[in-house]
Design a binder for these strands. Sequence first.
DNA 1: ATCAACTACCTAGGGTCTCTAGGAAATGGA
DNA 2: TCCATTTCCTAGAGACCCTAGGTAGTTGAT
Lengths: 192, 192
Amino acid sequence: MARAGLTTERVTEAAADLADAIGFENITVSALARSFGVKDASLYSHVRGLKDLRERVALLAAGELADRIAAAVAGRAGKDAMVAFANAYRDYALAHPGRYAATQAVQIDPAVLAECTAYIRTIELTHAMLRAYRLVEPHLTDAGRLLRSAFHGYITLEANGGFSHSRDVRTSWERSLDALHLVLEHWPGNPE
Amino acid sequence: MARAGLTTERVTEAAADLADAIGFENITVSALARSFGVKDASLYSHVRGLKDLRERVALLAAGELADRIAAAVAGRAGKDAMVAFANAYRDYALAHPGRYAATQAVQIDPAVLAECTAYIRTIELTHAMLRAYRLVEPHLTDAGRLLRSAFHGYITLEANGGFSHSRDVRTSWERSLDALHLVLEHWPGNPE
DNA sequence: ATCAACTACCTAGGGTCTCTAGGAAATGGA
DNA sequence: TCCATTTCCTAGAGACCCTAGGTAGTTGAT
């Protein structure tokens, strides 16, 4: 009886790959076990259950996303940083739809979330990226929320076919980034 | 054997209510049957299956949402219309989280979508609402996409607890609408 | 009022999935 | 080599989706 060499990490990563392939909401313990050539029950030694598995995929993806963003914004400032942030975000989501869906679809246990820094890092990176725009609180928070909303919303709608095919999405996205840059420079109520 | 009086419409509506109560992704044929005091198999006379049921809920919700938006923007123009649109959208999503999730989570069969006007109406309403800003194509399309993205993203993040609790979301939302109004008035590349 | 046609709902059952309990086989260190 | 640990197994309960085919309630025509 040769062993498959399962570990929590390997199972999580395989689940993430599976999610990218067939959609996050379609991953099952059974399908994952099949992909390892192993019985369902075997996975329960490495993962508490489906919910736990999904949570792990979400945390994995959040970490990867934060890494990509961090690499993209490093050494940049102002509009340059904003565009790099946005594109890193969008590229990751389009390249890894299942992983990205995980970051959004999972309601993370607050206790787990406090221990994991991936989500917090993304927010911190957002604030750092906004630094050059010299926004003061509460405008900094408001602008950060709008930016993340716009990024997330755009990618979700794009991935779900919410845009008609009449206009190239890439170009449209870039024009939206121009618009967001403009509004960050002239945020209503923020002292010049 | 008293009858429950099931019809396709009543089943769909009950499913939508159930979705609002326990979450769209948690609705099951079994649970729905239980809520009617009926066996699972009985529902299959009215609905082809779970996929069909979810699709019907999505179309129901899309229609309701379009109605709310239409009522909100009627007789308004400019920023007034934009804010009314945004608030109608957000209020509906927060009041009916399951229904709203349905409009996003379901990949509608293109053939069905062509017959149903609800989704198209929302896009048309967006363009009508933007009329006062005198955007010319392709800026009109780009701005419409950014707006819908921002609305959708904001609501999704808010509903999933994506915002820390340090700043009031309602106020933050209103400042974001101010910002979006500003950018619509000065859309980059659009002739004044 | 009765009978036929239709519809609403049923029972029965197969298949997939989650998850638990407890057992056997591979692995690594003493 | 033998023991403890870990890895993977079999067995089985319970939930869910869905089909096939049967029964009972309702409706309309006669």
